[in-house]
Amino acid sequence: MTGVGMPLRLRARLFRDAVLVALCVVALACAVVPLVWVLWDVVAVGVANLSLEFLTSLPAPPTIGGGGWANAIVGSVVVVGLAAAIGIPVGVGTGIYMSEYGANPLGRSARFLSEVMAGLPSIVAGVVAYGVIVVTMGQFSALSGGIALSLLFIPIVAITTQEALQMIPKDQREASFALGVSEAPTTLRVILPAAMGNVLTGVMIATARVVGETAPLLFTVFNSRYWMEGLDRPTATIPVNIYSYAISPFEHWHEQAWTGAFVLVTMVLTLNVAARTLWARRARFMAGR
């Protein structure tokens, strides 16, 4: 069709289409540009000061310079590991209940509470863990931090697990029932494995969410300048270190805060890629390739 013969109304419609697409592109740019900018800063400034010393040694006094965040890296891995160790079984279990047995008031309340908890301001989780665990134990500890983070971890995993299980077709359950297999093994051996890709995505989202949380850790693990001494002791973590180094008056510490942020982002990314790679083989098998 040539432009000359094009009816006016069609031209107006095509113009509106073009405007809509343009608006979407502008919105996309507003979303992506700051993200790329932040990542670029973290990488550029962070990598500049990345060294073996940073990854392997303890913090040095600001007046001396040098030193590393090895204790905080270990602390973050342990605290987030604790959150996952609590959050994965509890979250997946809750999700299974809500999906497979949840057509009752208990199941519906669990879903409602999970949604509320998923929107819980993280500092509230910290205050709760402080009140319940830190006060009872009489000291800050890695354990209380892991529990505070698990409060944020559980609802994300529970909701994604429920939704992942609901996506598995009913005929898979019936196939198993028709073989005389009862409900529990059907859920654990047929439905959950088939939904595992999406459950794993939920676990990754939850991990990424909690690994950078700072507020709940301030109340719970607090901080330490030494290697971790035990789950019942205050512990250094990357996010709390970033916070305290960034507000310090020392230029050298500011640079280390950037490097810490870079290490944190890299850890999340590596974990994601590793999980995806491991999962890809399984997904290919399930797709029959």
């Binding site: 077709p169 005929d171 898979q172 019936e174 196939a175 198993s176 028709a178 073989l179 047929v190 494995p193 088939a194 595992m196 399984r282 098998f285 399930m286 797709a287 029959g288």
Partner: peptide, 13 residues
């Protein structure tokens, strides 16, 4: 009493 369904439903995993 076994059953075979309308659509083939092998376990994909």
């Amino acid at each position: 009493v076994g059953m075979v369904f309308q659509r083939p439903n092998p376990f994909p995993t």
